[in-house]
Design a protein around this nucleic acid. Structure first.
Length: 664
RNA sequence: GUCCCCGUAGCUCAAUCGGAUAGAGCAUCGGCCUUCUAAGCCGAGGGUUGCAGGUUCGACUCCUGCCGGGGAUGCCA
């Protein structure tokens, strides 16, 4: 039951009788929403103002007409008290207690779905998320994609949609050329035998470092030239402007721009210099760098050989892939994430030439500087689908992927949970997909911001490396254990064994990381902080899990068989206190929250909802005795409210991929 | 240079399609545990929503310009 949707449906007819254009009716229906303040009722309709303007009548008059129409309809009267008109023409709606009670009882008896309906029609969604680069270690950004994608996937499925999770792993790109090159030249056989993934990661970093070194070596002189150029120009301008006040005004903008560029160049040069220094300050690296002066081209050629089917490189690829994948699987297991399919870049390799041909047949391909390009309206640069040297790029792979998904699953929508820096790429990809008519499915870039450190810069270790995911999870669990232990020790009778504490810490620690990710608006950057995510107050997983455990502890303490009580025909929820009613409305808003989450693919709409439920519960818990409530019917009613609260929290957290514990 | 995103309380973040007095948490201050987990609850203070205009009954939200931060920018993904 979606309260809001029910209200909107009921009032829709009334509006439709006055306005012909269905689009306008939709817009007006959209103005019905939860009230901003309890004193304005439970829901408010803000449609009288725009309608008044449209019909040329005072909004309050329109509101009065609408209210008259509302009270003439038995099905709305059954739901709502007579509406009130306030301010310029706001219509305030208050749900009837009897109706609310009946609905909350219905939800309480629904074992599986808590009253949440199944979407109709069900749609097919392909959710593309996680997508780590097999050759590179995973970093915090991958958690965001993985966790957000997983939450969307779970929620879509729960609402009855056909959700297909697809992990588009990077298992075929230049990074593999780097590993292969590294393995051929720098490998430590013993280390490889002991821990293949660790050694491969070392080879990747080493090769990467040498490539960066040579890139820096060529880039630095150019940057230096530019620096000199800018300084010269600045000097000229300064001299000119001292002699000529009018010229000074004209050049002030340029002065500023050059100043900014000067800062940029200086920063770039510092970075380049540090890459050079890292090698120069290490005798062994210096030798390696000189010995591998052509490493950049060599790596590209290893990649090209792999793609061309070179037996040696292909054999190495086949050898490297499984341990890398199993390393990634380990992280997924810890996160509790399972992705339906893993169809990476390599899966599409033999389809790429066909895609370029298809585009060519549709007259979409033009050659430019030797590369095959798709030129798109509204973009300054084309999308390259085949390089001058004949190699394909990620754009080609992504087009082939869309083509495959369309043919395999006929999806209604494809969601890409990928960070915001690729928004330009996706804009081009989607435009090209429409041009080539590969699919009619909704294509959505579910983008997300960067995870930042305390300093407001992308989350890195002090030495500037990306933070390994395994260590990140370890740290969260370690800190969670300290919090759990401290709390349990503070009880008169500690109730958790060492194993239980470790298990709770594991669940609480992982939940903290996931929840922090999900609770922030995905489009903005957010600051990663163990202290904040593990805080026991505020909008955190810990608070929510605590609320859940507190509810469950009531049943244990009172020796209540809640599953049996829930099924008793005579047991029902009745309101005897305002906090019970407020909690009930919260509990009945679950479907509304899920719909809102999926409408914009915003998991934080669900976390906000769950936090609201937990808060309403805490208020209720504070103000109403449960086990000691008299008479028996009130005690039963409150137990049922507690039960529905617990199940709502567990279900909602579950849809976010977050576990709960019975004691903490 | 061009394009995209962001700028909200001291801090971290919300605010649904343009709605009533811009909300939470942290931090600060004041109350509430012989009573179901105080990891809690109740209350107070704290804001020119970057700046300047515009659109209208109404703007954090839409439009224009500016300032500040980040990102993307033809053969990496």
């Amino acid at each position: 039951m979606n309260l809001l949707a029910s209200l909107r449906r009921a009032i829709r007819d009334i509006l439709a009788a006055r306005i012909d254009d269905p689009a306008v009716v939709d817009e007006l229906v959209g103005t019905i929403r939860p009230s901003t303040d309890p004193k304005f009722g439970d829901y408010q309709a803000n449609c009288a103002m725009p309608l008044g303007k449209r019909l040329g009548k005072p909004p309050r008059e329109i509101a009065a007409e609408l209210v008259a129409a509302v009270v003439a309809r038995p099905e709305i009267v059954a739901m709502c008290e007579p509406p009130e008109i306030a301010g310029p023409g706001f219509i305030n709606l208050r749900l009837r207690d009897e109706w609310l009670a009946a609905e909350v009882n219905r939800a309480a008896r629904d074992e599986e779905r808590l009253g949440v309906g199944i979407a109709s029609p069900a749609k097919t969604y392909v959710v593309d998320y996680s997508g780590p680069n097999v050759a590179k270690p995973m970093h915090v950004g991958h958690i965001r994609s993985t966790v957000i994608g997983d939450a969307l996937w779970r929620t879509l499925k729960f609402l009855g949609h056909n959700a297909i999770g697809d992990n588009h792993v990077g298992d075929w790109g230049t990074q593999f050329g780097m590993i292969i090159y590294g393995w051929k030249h720098f490998r430590d056989e013993a280390a490889y035998k002991a821990n293949a993934v660790e050694e491969l990661a070392r080879l990747y970093r080493l090769t990467r470092q040498l490539i960066d070194y040579w890139d820096a070596a060529t880039a630095l002189p150019k940057a230096t030239d530019r620096l000199v150029e800018i300084k010269t120009r600045l000097l000229t301008i300064q001299t000119e402007s001292e002699n000529d006040k009018i010229a000074a005004k004209k050049t002030s903008a340029e002065l500023k721009r050059l100043g900014a560029e000067l800062d940029d160049i200086a920063a770039v040069m510092a970075t380049l210099q540090s890459k050079l220094d890292a090698v120069h300050n290490n005798a062994r690296l210096s030798v390696l760098a000189v010995d591998h002066a052509a490493i950049n081209d060599a790596v590209l050629s290893e990649t090209a050989k792999l793609h061309a089917g070179d037996p040696e490189n292909l054999a190495l690829w086949r050898e490297f892939l499984p341990p890398c994948m199993s390393d990634i699987e380990t992280i997924y297991r810890r996160l509790g994430v399972k992705i339906d399919y893993t169809l990476g870049e390599s899966f599409y390799h033999d389809r790429l030439a066909g895609i370029v041909e298809l585009l060519a047949r549709k007259n979409l391909v033009r050659e430019s500087d030797g590369a095959k390009c798709v030129f798109l309206d509204g973009f300054d640069f084309p999308m390259i689908v085949q390089k001058r040297d004949g190699a394909f790029l990620y754009s080609t792979t992504d087009l082939a992927t869309i083509d495959y998904r369309e043919k395999t699953w006929r999806p209604d929508a494809i969601l890409y949970v990928v960070d915001h820096r690729q928004s330009g790429h996706f804009a081009q990809l989607f435009a090209a997909t429409r041009l080539a008519d590969l699919t009619d499915a909704e294509l959505a870039h579910v983008s997300f911001g960067t995870v930042l450190g305390d300093d407001g810069k992308p989350f890195k270790t002090r030495s500037g490396d990306t933070v390994g995911l395994g260590g990140l999870l370890d740290e969260a669990e370690r800190r969670a254990l300290a919090i759990v232990s401290e709390n349990d020790d503070a009880k008169p009778q500690p109730e958790l064994s060492a194993e239980e504490r470790a298990n709770v810490a594991r669940i609480v620690g992982i939940a903290a990381i996931k929840y922090a990710d999900l609770a922030h608006n995905r489009t903005s950057d957010y600051v990663f902080s163990y202290d904040k995510m593990l805080a026991t107050k505020g909008n955190t997983a810990t608070y929510m899990q605590y609320a859940y455990a507190r509810v469950r502890s009531i049943f244990r303490k009172g020796d209540v068989d809640i599953d049996a009580l829930r099924r008793e025909a005579a047991a029902e929820i009745v309101f005897t206190h305002p906090s019970e009613r407020a909690l009930a409305i919260g509990l009945l808003s679950l479907e509304e929250a899920l719909d809102s989450m999926l409408a914009g693919y915003y998991p934080h709409h669900l976390t906000t909802y769950l936090f609201d439920v937990a808060t309403r519960y805490s208020t209720f818990y504070q103000e109403c005795d449960v086990l000691k409530a008299e008479p028996e019917s009130t005690r039963t009613s409150r137990l049922l409210l507690c039960d529905l609260t617990a199940r709502t929290l567990k279900l909602g957290l579950g849809l976010l991929g977050i576990e709960t514990v019975e004691k903490m």
